[in-house]
Design a protein around this nucleic acid. Structure first.
Length: 402
RNA sequence: GGAGAGGUUCCCGAGCGGCCAAAGGGAACAGACUGUAAAUCUGUCGUCAGACGACUUCGGAGGUUCGAAUCCCCCCCUCUCCA
């Protein structure tokens, strides 16, 4: 069959393609005309912390790019004012132009760790929505009925549960859908929860008499807690900006049952190889071995091979062998002694005096490996002392004689 | 516009005049253990103060009371039903 290779690449790690037959037609057409397909993905510039869950569809975009197609990233400066109803982020501070600009720049910087910049277009929603007036908006809204929206889980559930549902929120899928018209997308990427919004884009294109886009839906990546989807509000995410050591550690903290899932969706590993790992894990082997490999693979993706190895040895050093890490934050002190509690709070090892005391009482504080138990005590400062709080917080003191 | 329900500590959610810094669960953190920042168990979880005690907190502003998250008044917000 024609396009067998392309389809195999596109299908990999994808939950659903709607409709697949049309995608084949589009591929054919693209080949015939030599015109690359336009692959859309939208982001809301409400913040800029990108986590590896976001990158599942982005990696898919890269694969499209490698097949010669064009990625189009939409900066949702209008939808950001609404907040994706499926995302359920509470606070929506109004965004001004500078914030949009700086957020999206930082956002793109992270996406370009994956994307091919030469085949990426970045577009702002305000390019088209900024020109619209009330009449245009009414016309857009008239294309859909309330029943269509209430048939959608997110809206219906919130309505039925008696939760607030703003009128403007139903505009979200409409705006996102119109984006597809504006940029004439052939394919829109997103996680499965985006199905409704992306299909809205299809409807919108049909209404405007255009060729309709294909939805290519990625699975939702679970967070490090293994229960909820990875998200900023849940504090269960691995960020692109996390240090290699943090990425490694966070991967090590996922439940064992999640290992294969992450291999599938958060790494570039070949499916055959993942199949092998699956079999290995089923033999009852210590999952840690493969979790380390997973962590290494993920670090590698963003920081390179060497960083992956380094993060692993740092992890083993600190957690398996309980040695000191290489990069301990340092402070320089001139005094001969300091109250321990103050030292901990002043250097952000603890959030408050009370917490510092609690930590001491819970045997969480050590000085050069020795437990510190005197809640009120002073620390005699000597050069090179290492303070450790809990499992992960360190501080080294440099004594300035001067 | 009318009638009713509600807004509690990071989240969910109990409390409805003193025994409430506020049950319970989740998250988080710590300790033990371990094969991992897995799992499990135990503990901690407003701030300040030598665990006594003090101060700030229960949508917002007032009031009643020796004393309020709990009662009253006004305001803001959410939900349901009626029009």
């Amino acid at each position: 069959m024609k396009f067998e290779h392309e389809l195999k690449v596109i299908r990999k790690g994808v939950e659903e393609i709607i409709p697949e037959e049309e995608l084949i037609k589009k591929l054919e057409k693209s080949e015939k005309t030599g015109k690359p397909l336009r692959i859309k993905y939208g982001i809301d510039p409400t913040g800029y912390d990108v986590h590896i869950g976001h990158l599942v569809p982005i990696r898919k975009m890269r694969e499209f790019q490698d097949l010669g197609h064009t990625g189009v990233i939409i900066i949702g400066d209008f939808t950001a004012q609404i907040g994706d109803p499926t995302g359920r982020d509470e606070s929506r501070p109004p965004l001004n132009a500078e914030m949009v600009k700086s957020n999206s720049e930082k956002y793109m910087e992270q996406l370009f760790t994956v994307l091919d910049a030469s085949k990426t277009e970045v577009r702002l929603q305000s390019e088209w929505f900024g020109k619209m007036g009330m009449m245009d908006v009414l016309k857009l809204m008239g294309k859909f009925t309330l029943a269509q929206f209430m048939a959608h889980d997110t809206f219906r559930n919130r309505y039925e549960q008696g939760l607030p549902l703003g009128m403007h929120e139903i505009m979200y899928p409409i705006l996102q859908g119109y984006d597809s018209v504006a940029i004439e997308s052939d394919v829109e990427l997103g996680a499965t929860e985006q199905k409704f919004n992306i299909l809205c884009g299809r409807d919108m294109q049909r209404i405007y008499g255009m060729e309709q886009q294909i939805a290519v839906l990625s699975p939702i990546l679970l967070g490090t807690d293994g229960i909820q989807k990875m998200g900023k509000s849940m504090n269960n995410y691995i960020a692109v900006f996390d240090t290699p050591n943090d990425k490694f550690g966070k991967v090590m903290s996922i439940p064992d049952a999640l290992i294969l899932n992450y291999f599938n969706y958060a790494t570039k590993l070949d499916p055959d190889e993942i199949e092998k790992i699956k079999k290995e894990l089923a033999t009852g082997i210590n999952p840690m071995i493969y979790k380390k490999m997973l962590a290494r693979e993920i670090v590698k993706l963003y920081h390179g091979e060497e960083a992956g190895m380094e993060a692993q040895s740092a992890f083993e050093k600190v957690f398996s062998n309980k040695e000191l890490p290489d990069d301990i934050p340092e402070i320089t002190m001139t005094d001969d002694k300091i109250k321990m509690i103050r030292l901990l709070v002043d250097n952000q090892l603890c959030a408050s005096n009370s917490e510092a005391k609690r930590m001491i009482m819970q045997n969480a504080v050590t000085v050069d490996g020795e437990k510190w138990s005197d809640v009120e005590g002073d620390l005699q400062i000597t050069d090179g002392l290492v303070i450790k709080v809990g499992k992960r917080k360190y501080l080294q003191i440099k004594k300035d004689q001067g």
